[in-house]
Design a protein around this nucleic acid. Structure first.
Lengths: 305, 305
DNA sequence: TTCAGGCTATAAATTGGATTTATATCGTGC
DNA sequence: GCACGATATAAATCCAATTTATAGCCTGAA
């Protein structure tokens, strides 16, 4: 029959060995002398042999006691490391984040949010990748990644979706006379040189529909893969641009002003989370943090400068 | 404030993770379901975060729970090894013996006793050295060695001494007419060729005194450092020999018979143990075992063959 | 739909091991 | 010889773990 030792027994034994005395140990352990005395006696009973030789009312550790001390220290140290590590999960000081984001958020928005979130958490690992929205959907469904930010996909049982409705805005050179208006219409932009995304993109399609409905001519001067490079073009006075709200809210854009547009062109961006499996504490915290920032972008009014 | 985990909590958690269910775990742990349920809840409270997501009355482990499982297994394994090792001390299956013996016991007696004692204890280490009795005394006093067997030294506070009085015997060729006698006297051995130890040795001195007292002539044909090589000389019919009891009792001696001698020449052999420090369990057991064998040698009658 | 049977959670009662309180014994040093 | 500091032991107490009892929830079968 093997002995059955408890952590408390190991701690008590260690302290008795360190101090060389039961009374002394009882003081540092904030217990009474009999408590320690009986606990040591119980350990000895469990082990089946004595750890100390008692003579003249003093304790002398046996060779086995010295060996046991080394073992006990290792067990206690191991447990201590575990406890420390586990409590770091609770304080968000440990863990890993696997984040997949779509092009528009990958330039400034997500890096900024992530940087803020990780400030002061040197032991948190992060894996941040940029992919097309379709690919992100699969990466979340397959649980390769913990959090996705992409254009809202159709409902799938393997993904939890939190959508945000973000109006696109018009970027204009700040000197342009149109910048005096709060809200622009297709008529205002009749034949105005514009930078826009590729033809397939929903925002492009929606813009074309808006112009067509008003009978206005859309002048697509620049075709881009992402909105970000439009900003320097606009800043240089070469064109205006239809820009998603995330890019507009976070990217540096000297010499550019943003104005609202009617009819509203809303891109539906969503937080994607793997369904079924629980998220880690860190993922949950970052999800909350990210959501908060998205809500903020959603609610920020575009004001006339 | 760091959490304070117990072994029982770790064991319980591990079982819940393994079986994937509190009810199932409670069965294998031979406890009731609420006991396990509250214990898991308490672990979560201590850690400060949940390890399982409860939905539909089922548990799903969080990523942190998987990590915690690995940690818990390591702690438990470490403790398990400790417990196993410590209980081996109790069953004498582990430990080390450092034994120093004097020449007479080093040839056959101590190796035989040690071999018997270690039978079936593959993990016990032994260090057996042969030294002069004076050196052994110091090696025990300095606690370099655990057990010494040597000629009885004077009292020292750093050594505990257990003396044994062992009569020397006469070795004779079995064909010799003297072999018919039970007890020999110096007169019987008048001018008989003898193998003996060097002149300084107490047994040699005592023998010389005995012969002198009887006015008998002692014929020292062979002078040896130990008694053992005397036996083949005696067996070959070249001489008789004064042999210490330990050598006589345990060494193979074909063609040799042993007879008592008066006046008695007694060598005082002693078990030497370090004072002050407690002996290991294994040392204590071996000391008992060795003592028993010494008593046996002490009490064995030399019978006429 | 309902019912049986699986799961988990919670409250209250119980238990048992750890702890405290109280006391005895032994040695050492003054 | 006596105070002091050590350890051991017994009895009382306390607290955490466990059991008992119960309720809620979901699933699958009738």
């Amino acid at each position: 029959m093997l002995p059955n030792l408890t952590i408390r027994q190991l701690q008590t034994f260690r302290e008795v060995m360190r101090s060389g005395s039961i009374s002394e140990a009882s003081r540092t352990l904030l217990r009474t002398q009999p408590a320690v005395s009986t606990m040591i006696a119980n350990i000895e009973k469990e082990l089946g042999f004595n750890l100390f030789v008692r003579e003249h009312g003093r304790l002398t550790p046996s060779p086995e006691a010295h060996y046991f001390l080394e073992e006990a220290e290792e067990v206690l140290d191991r447990l201590d490391r575990t406890v420390r590590t586990m409590s770091e999960f609770g304080t968000l000081d440990r863990g890993s984040l696997r984040i997949a984001c779509h092009p528009a958020s990958s330039g400034f928005f997500l890096p900024k949010v992530l940087a803020e979130f990780l400030k002061g958490r040197p032991d948190v690992k992060a894996d941040l990748v940029m992919r097309s929205s379709q690919v992100i959907e699969d990466m979340i469904a397959s649980q390769e990644f913990d959090i996705g930010l992409a254009e809202t996909p159709r409902q799938r049982s393997s993904i939890r979706i939190e959508p945000f409705r973000l109006e696109c805005v018009i970027a204009l050179p700040e000197q342009d006379p149109l910048a005096s208006k709060d809200v622009l219409t297709p008529a205002d932009l009749e034949n105005y040189p514009m930078a826009m995304l590729f033809s397939d993109h929903p925002d492009t399609l929606a813009t074309q529909r808006a112009f067509a409905q008003c009978g206005a001519t859309l002048n697509r001067r620049f075709v881009l893969r992402t909105s970000l490079p439009a900003l320097p073009l606009v800043g240089a006075g070469l064109c205006g641009a239809i820009v998603d709200r995330i890019t507009a809210a976070t990217s540096p854009a000297p010499g550019v002003v943003f104005r609202r547009f009617t009819p509203v062109i809303a891109s539906s961006i969503a937080l994607l989370l793997p369904a079924q499996r629980p998220a880690s504490i860190l993922t949950t915290a970052f999800r909350d943090y990210l959501r908060q920032h998205l809500v903020q972008v959603e609610n920020t009014l575009i004001s006339t400068g």
